[in-house]
């Protein structure tokens, strides 16, 4: 009995998903507009601001496409509209899949099994939604407090602040590389090749600065190709 999928793909359910997705777009628009306005009191030019937006947009293509594949699997079980909302919104594919599974379990059925009916589907939707709200509530209420925390640590020392950012990226990236590499030697190779190519491109783009915005994409593709070939 897969007839819950008809409900899960109900056209009105798409309409119900639109406001939350649109909110994500509106926020991105409002924040960009404020950033453009604020650039006047900094050393940034309008041109640099436009470029920053473009670099972000281009760099996101690769990782977004990887979400694409997971998405199709999710759509087969929880339908188009809810998948569309959840993957445009806080959370990522693994989080949402875990939440859907737990929602089904709480109903006493397996996620995606023949017993997974419309109530179990609703239970998955509630679980994903409530889980996502955890981050929305915490960040909605306390993000501005984190700012002061960081200021206090650095004590207004700009060089130290920069080093803290660099160290945070390195600590986090180290963990992400390590946990991915643990999942298989091929993944380790992908990380290693991408890392080496990135260093080489960094050297090249000292001479050809125009290239720089594509460095991440090129390194990523190089890592992917070598990992597939081995």
């Amino acid at each position: 009995m897969k007839d819950y999928l008809e409900i899960a793909n109900d056209p009105i359910l798409w309409v119900m998903a639109i406001p939350a997705v649109v909110m994500v777009g509106i926020q991105a628009y409002l924040f960009s507009r404020r950033a453009f306005e604020a650039s006047k009191v900094t050393t940034l030019s309008k041109e640099q601001c436009r470029k920053a937006f473009k670099v972000g947009a281009v760099s996101a293509i690769g990782p977004s496409l990887s979400v694409f594949v997971v998405m199709l699997g999710m759509m087969a079980v929880i339908g188009g509209p809810v998948t569309w909302l959840r993957l445009s919104f806080i959370g990522a594919a693994p989080t949402e899949l875990t939440a859907s599974t737990i929602g089904a379990k709480a109903m006493g059925v397996e996620f995606g099994s023949p017993e997974y009916d419309v109530t179990a589907f609703a239970s998955s939707v509630w679980t994903m939604t409530l889980n996502g709200c955890g981050w929305l509530i915490f960040c909605g209420l306390f993000t501005h407090k984190l700012d002061r925390l960081q200021d206090r640590v650095a004590g207004g020392d700009a060089v130290l602040m920069e080093q803290i950012c660099g160290a945070a990226i390195l600590g986090t990236a180290s963990y992400l590389v390590m946990s991915n590499s643990q999942a298989g030697f091929d993944r380790f190779v992908a990380a290693l090749v991408a890392a080496i190519v990135m260093v080489l491109l960094g050297k090249v783009s000292e001479k050809a600065p125009k290239l720089k915005e594509y460095n991440l994409g090129i390194s990523m593709i190089a890592g992917m190709i070598v990992a597939v070939l081995i």
Partner: peptide, 26 residues
């Protein structure tokens, strides 16, 4: 540089760009 006002604005715009790409792809 990260941690400067310029750094924050550029990160904001870079993230905004990535959000638009993500919305389109999804």
């Amino acid at each position: 540089k990260g941690g400067t006002n310029e750094g924050e604005l550029v990160a904001t715009l870079g993230i905004a760009g990535s959000i638009i790409t993500n919305l389109i792809v999804v």
